[in-house]
Every structure is written in C-alpha cells, then in structure tokens.
C-alpha cells in the first residue's frame, strides 16, 4: 500500500512539471509549396502542392492552382507546365546551363513567382579506386569549374547503387576538412550527401562501407552524382539533411510567398563500376 502511495505521489509530482498546449492561429492558413529541380538538358518538372498551417483547425478546402507558366530571365514567355496528376507538372522545354528561369502562377488571387539559375558546367574525374583490406572501397575524385568566376560554386555529392534495377542512395564516409559536413559538424557520418563550396579545383575522397562488393552482382552498378547547385538550393538541401538527423531543427520560411524550393543544378555522373 505504501509503495502504491509513493508511486502515485511521484507520478503526480512529475506530471505537474509539464504543460502542453496548442498555439493560437498565426500567419496564412494555406501556402503553396513548390518543389523541383531544374537540371541542364532535362525537361522542367515540379510538384506544386498546398501546405496547411498546423496552428489552424483541420480544414479540407484546398486552394486550386490552374496555370503555371515558365519565363526566361528577360521575361519572355517560354511554356506552360502541363498538369500530370499527383500534383506534378512538366514542361516541354529543356533547361540550359548558365541560364535563369522564372515560374509564375496564381494562388489565392496573388501572383507567385519562383526563380532559379542553372549553374555553369564543371568537369569531374575519378583519379583512383582503391580496394581496402576490409573490402571497403576508396574513390578519389577531382572537380573543376569550367567558368572563370571568382564566386563560390556550391556542390552536392550523392552516391547511388543500382541493385536488381532498384536505385538506392548509398551512405559513405569522408574526412576532407573543406567539406561542410566535416567543417561545421552539423551532420554525422556516414553521409547521404556531401556539401562543399569552392572557387578553385578540389580533390576529395569517398569511402564506402566495408564488404561493399558482397551487395553487388553482375549487372548492378555504383555511381557518383555530382551537382553544382545555386546557393539557395544548396542551403535548402543542407537544411533538409540536418532536419533528417535532428527533428528539432526546422526549415526556414523562404518568405517568397511559397514554401519549398525550385533549385537549379548542373549534374555530372561518374560510374565507379
């Protein structure tokens, strides 16, 4: 009896410490979400959805978006993005490296514009592939921007395995000090994306997990995707990666009238095997 009384007292004591509540509604109830990546020589594709403000009570009404148009940086009309179901839209225009583009659409009687720039080209090469003693694989590569610019270029690196025709992002390790994952310590290894910025050519190494060859059979492949991206898109990808590791880290509101990102990327692919 004494134990139960003591236990109840302890529960009562600690339950009184915490106070939970829902904040009053703030900001707009619905906001458009633009998510997409414009890659050189590929058709423009985006997903356009609606984000409900979670401080408002549940409301099933969704703001409809009728027309999305694509414009160049001189404000010349290029194309309309056709709806493809599942909130996806696609244009028949292809993105060109070094050019800027604008998306325009009406949302709740307000004109929303999203801008992006496809970065200029770069060259990437694999210098060496070394099979280490524990059957892990070390790949050394170099990246050089082809444009003569003094501004930083922002790069994102991903590794993709194609096993039984199924694409999977493969985690890997890196120790180079200029890589932002290591420099700022916000992301922990193994990484699914590497982030760095540079004005000069860079050499870096990627180390895959031990016994990597056990997972691959004939016909399977391992590739490295290197993307040069615009600064806003870089920041967005970096923040989303942090949020995947730390739930209490929230994405900033980009204050452009929409959420999400319409990123521009110049992509190169290197095949390891």
């Amino acid at each position: 009896m004494k134990t139960i009384y003591l236990l109840c007292s302890i529960i009562l004591f600690f339950s009184s410490c915490s106070n939970e509540y829902t904040p009053p509604p703030q900001q707009k109830e619905n906001v458009p979400v633009v998510l997409g990546e414009a890659v050189q020589n590929e058709y423009f594709k985006i997903t356009l959805t609606n984000a409900r403000n979670r401080t408002y009570p549940e409301n099933k009404s969704v703001v409809s978006i009728k027309e999305v148009s694509l414009w160049d940086s001189s404000n010349n009309f290029l194309d309309k993005l056709a709806a493809q179901g599942n909130n996806k839209r696609k244009s028949n225009q292809k993105a060109e490296a070094g050019k800027s583009y604008i998306l325009k659409f009406k949302y709740d009687n307000e004109e929303i514009t999203a801008k992006t720039t496809i970065p200029s080209s770069f060259t990437a090469n694999i210098h060496r592939k070394t099979q280490l003693s524990n059957d892990s694989l070390l790949v050394e590569l170099s990246i050089k921007n082809n444009a003569s610019s003094t501004d930083d270029s922002f790069y994102v690196i991903e590794c993709w395995a194609s096993i039984n025709k199924k694409q999977t992002k493969l985690p890997f390790a890196n120790n180079d000090s200029f890589i932002h994952n290591n420099k700022y310590g916000m992301l922990s290894s193994p990484f699914k994306r590497l982030f760095f910025s540079s004005t000069s050519p860079q050499q870096l190494s990627i180390k895959f997990l031990s016994n990597i060859y056990l997972y691959f059979k004939d016909g399977d492949s391992l590739i490295i995707k290197i993307k040069s991206v615009n600064p806003d898109y870089y920041k967005y990808l970096y923040n989303t990666e942090i949020q995947l590791q730390n739930e209490e880290f929230y994405l900033p509101n980009n204050a452009n009238g929409y959420l999400g990102v319409w990123g521009g990327a110049y992509e190169e692919t290197l095949t390891i095997f």
Binding site: Q27, G36, T47, K169, L251, N253, L259
Partner: peptide, 30 residues
C-alpha cells in the same frame, strides 16, 4: 515553432523516401 509540414525534396526529384516530411517554421522567434 513549426507551422507547416511539407514533402521532402527527395520525394520529388528521386521518388525516394515518400514518408519523410520536413517542417517549416513561420517567423524566427515568431
């Protein structure tokens, strides 16, 4: 505080991680 919930960019560009969501806050210290 997080006030919006949106899809992860990988859902869109890679058709990857469909269940992952990202949370966006309203104003800083809002």
């Amino acid at each position: 505080i997080p006030i919006y919930e949106i899809a992860n960019i990988d859902n869109v560009i890679n058709d990857d991680s469909p269940s992952i969501k990202n949370y966006v806050y309203g104003d800083i210290n809002g």
